[in-house]
Nucleic acid binder design. Structure first.
Lengths: 311, 311
DNA sequence: CTGAAAGCGCTAACAA
DNA sequence: TTGTTAGCGCTTTCAG
């Protein structure tokens, strides 16, 4: 029962005198760290920094500190990182690493530590997550290509053990049929990872298979970049000979040669939404899980054009 | 006085039974957090993730957790973030945000918290830092351009309150004179920030000044990207009409249109070196400060060519 | 060499 | 309502 002003004055005076409440004592007593762990599969993939930013802002405003852990796309690192974060007693976790079947989920549940998946989700139900609508994104891409006149469209799929890999692949099949174009199995290649290297390999395989397609839809931007390399290697031009599309609209996608037609995901909003959801879970352990799906947006740029010879 | 094997067995058994030493109790007692703060000016600038990776690896192997704090290029956020990290009682700090005159340095000293600057350094002596040799990098660029036949070379300088901005600018002046080319003041533009937007503005100003140059050396890759935009706006082609160079060799610099000739900095090694230095400081408070300088490497790509009309 | 106990700085429960 | 105190789980000191 003191005035706001007095409280502020005291606080100020305390700060002036260099007093800082000891966080260890507080945490020892309360078992709360006010820290949240964020698991990232690959920090150097430009998709993640904007997500992290959204997370950090939201969580920071609520008084939480973010502890980032990067697993460099290695599954065993994920486990080590999770272990480390548990040791640090984080109050919650945001997982951007989720596989469709993910051991980490069970491990989080076992310790009853609140968590939210972001960008990728699990096959399991009852898990909170914030992702983008992959089916809608791919549908927009395929529709764009079909409108341009493409009929034989190849697909480079990401890892099928990731929800993004599977969701976009299925989305592609559905979207093709929606356009009345039966997807040809020999025009579909699968990748082990969302990397430029894998995209290169897959595109080269597709091209070696005799071609017969006028466009390649790639499961993400990095894969599309690999396509660029494969096309250049064979002296093919994009988009004159073959159109290419990506997914994610990663930073600088508009600066590539050619500027990449891709699907934009509201990455920072995605991060912020995941953080807000986690905040709710941390505040109320009984809060129901929730799955959010954000709407992506097609970004038409220079990597797509009408097929040259009636594709 | 127990065997290694027994120690391992006990440890294993402890882990098996779900025992985890409580880090708060440990920290409360010892005043050590085994956490290190890393201050980053802008996470979405692709230069930083590789540095962070090097830091995280090295520090992680030594048992430290990295707490990342991103200030989005806002000076006030830096202070807030530092305050937050101090509150968290980090054992050390790696600053990638350093200005030539940096208030944070005094604040770290005041609390006697070990710190190391990375990528940028301070004008102040007696501060540990790991940076790249900017003079050497710019010299390589200018020499490359001069060899191609360029004589009128413009420069887009980064912020002069950052060691990288100043160092590369001075390096440019020296390198030009070294080639027997007097740098023309009206061919030099200064930017307030290392951003695409500022690079665009500066390039436009330079071009509006009547041109009369055949190449632009930019203080970093983002600035160079801005040049691309400005050239495209005026219908000028790179490198046919004007050559452009960047600095940092950020990820995907080789994928731009055109692929960017730039200077590669060993970013992860830089991060790792800074982490090792910090480890030394944390271990031995009396350890002398040390400044390391890493050697950069010129990456010649498609954005530079012979001048079209005798430059 | 081994085992008991004090105390780090805070919060929460309790007594006054 | 206000002031006192126990105790969070470790490390470290000190007595046995």
């Amino acid at each position: 029962m003191v005035t706001e002003e007095m409280a502020a004055r005291v606080e100020h005076a305390a700060a002036e005198m260099g007093y800082r409440p000891n966080p260890f004592a507080y945490s020892l007593k309360t078992n709360r760290s006010f820290a949240v762990g964020v698991l990232i599969p690959d920090l150097t993939n430009p998709v993640f920094p904007p997500i992290i930013r959204g997370v950090e802002r939201t969580l920071g405003d609520a008084g939480y500190t973010v502890i980032l852990a990067n697993s460099d796309n290695q599954g065993d690192r994920e486990l080590v990182n999770l272990e480390e974060l548990k040791t640090r007693q984080v109050d919650g976790l945001i997982l951007a690493t989720a596989h469709r079947e993910d051991a980490l989920i069970a491990l989080c549940r076992a310790e009853e530590i609140p968590f939210v998946l972001v960008n990728r989700r699990s096959d399991e139900d009852g898990v909170s997550s914030v992702v983008a609508d992959d089916a809608a994104g791919v549908r927009a891409v395929v529709s764009h290509l079909a409108t341009l006149g493409h009929r034989r469209i190849a697909y480079i799929a990401g890892p099928q053990n990731l929800s993004t890999g599977l969701g976009r692949y299925r989305g592609f099949l559905d979207a093709m049929r929606g356009e009345g174009l039966e997807p040809a199995p020999d025009l579909i290649a699968f990748c082990d990872a969302f990397t430029e290297k894998e995209g290169f390999r897959a595109a080269r395989d597709l091209l070696a298979g005799g071609g017969g397609f006028s466009a390649i839809v790639a499961g993400n931007d990095l894969l599309a970049l690999g396509c660029y390399d494969a096309l250049a290697d064979l002296g093919l031009r994009c988009p004159e000979d073959i159109s290419v599309t990506g997914y994610n609209d990663m930073p600088f996608a508009d600066k590539f040669a050619p500027p990449l037609t891709t699907v934009r995901i509201p990455l920072d909003r995605m991060g912020a939404a995941a953080a807000k959801l986690l905040l709710r879970h941390m505040q109320d352990a009984g809060a129901g899980t929730q799955s959010m799906m954000l709407t992506p947006e097609l970004m038409v740029r220079g990597s797509t054009a009408r097929p040259s010879s009636g594709g």
